[in-house]
């Protein structure tokens, strides 16, 4: 019968104290286990009674998953480091200000005090049809309710939609992609290191998940190479309310300047596709050009090639253009005020 909300179902709770213990529990319980870090995404699923895992593995007691340390000029950030810690960390602020800014603009202070960077990047889609528990593609069904002629899809995808038009809602994910971050994933006794680009996946590859993380996997750390440390950075998030809102569109850019010209760049927008959408064409085209209006205009047009708007989200095309222009011009905008 109709969904009853706001009464969490019972589960078995594990609070391992080490990564090894956590992996052991995950290994034993396989798909029955749900990994919880800050819980800011988890509680929605559980309280909505849409997900009813038999086992919840709370990572809150695993100290080794927290902390930020220097790694050859780059940084290694433990997966359950809180967003507040990331936003306030002097090393992050000095080397990768766009990550600090992205973390600082997530949701609300209390959520940042509890939400983790690992959780922020691996959070699930916020499409309100999917989150209503409707049997859409992402939920294993056979329809995208957000991509129908009557659907209300202002917040949905304009790029790379494949049946599902949900977007990646994260603020830190595009920043990390723009910093060429790598993600350390452990499973059993194995460890693999996945580049940001491969970590996030679109619906064409797997319509039921936004990242490569599978049951049994544990994201343990994020490694940011020194490549973009101290380079020119830009982050901006456009949203309806200044607190508690996901981005309509956000942009993260890092630019390596050689004199007055751009020698290399990473430019990523989120809120437009199921994965942080990297603007490869723009990155290539702006190399060797100055950060000026002409470059910005040219880049803006390139950025939105291939965009397919839905009924209510065509505005994202000019919005992406505007943000790309600003990222290239590098004007300081009100980010958090």
């Amino acid at each position: 019968m109709p969904p009853i909300r706001d009464a969490m179902s019972a589960f078995e709770l594990f609070q391992p104290a080490s990564v090894g213990d956590a992996l052991g529990i995950l290994d034993r319980h396989g798909a029955d286990a749900w990994v919880m870090a800050g819980g800011m995404d988890t509680f929605d699923w559980l309280k909505d009674r849409i997900k009813k895992p038999k086992v919840v593995v709370d990572l809150g007691m695993v100290d080794e998953l927290r902390g930020i340390k220097d790694a050859a000029g780059g940084l290694e950030i433990g997966a359950t480091t809180t967003l507040t810690t990331v936003a306030n960390n002097p090393l992050v602020k000095e080397r990768f200000p766009l990550l600090a800014e992205a973390a600082l603009i997530v949701a609300s202070p209390q959520i940042r005090n509890q939400g983790t960077v690992g959780g922020n990047i691996s959070q699930d889609a916020r499409c309100w049809y999917y989150r209503a528990g409707w049997p859409c593609y992402r939920a294993g069904g056979n329809i995208c309710y957000a991509d129908t002629p009557t659907a209300v899809n202002r917040e949905h995808a304009i790029f790379n939609a494949d049946r599902c038009v949900a977007v990646n809602p994260s603020d830190t994910a595009p920043a990390l992609v723009a910093l060429d971050a790598e993600f350390v994933i452990k499973r059993g006794s194995a460890e693999r290191v996945v580049p940001a680009r491969e970590f996030f996946i679109g619906p064409g590859i797997d319509i039921t998940r936004l990242t490569v993380l599978q049951p049994g996997d544990l994201l343990t750390a994020i490694r940011i190479p020194a490549t973009w440390a101290g380079k020119a950075h830009y982050f901006e998030k456009v949203r309806d309310r200044m607190v508690w809102d996901f981005a309509l569109v956000n942009i993260a850019a890092s630019l390596n300047m050689s004199g007055a010209t751009i020698s290399d760049a990473r430019m990523v927008v989120n809120g437009v596709a199921a994965e942080p959408y990297r603007l490869d064409a723009v990155e290539a085209a702006i190399k060797g050009r100055p950060r000026d209006k002409a470059t910005a205009e040219m880049a803006a047009d390139l950025a939105v090639q291939g965009a397919v708007p839905l009924r209510h989200n065509a505005y994202k095309i000019p919005l992406v253009k505007a943000l790309v222009k600003r990222a290239i011009r590098g004007e300081a905008e009100w980010a958090t005020s």
Binding site: M1, P2, P3, A132, G133, W134, P135, A139, G140, G141, N142, Y145
Partner: peptide, 16 residues
């Protein structure tokens, strides 16, 4: 076959 709850709470088939 797999079943799901439709948005109206009805049991509907989705896939094999």
């Amino acid at each position: 076959v797999s079943w799901a709850r439709s948005p109206w709470g009805d049991s509907v088939l989705t896939h094999i």
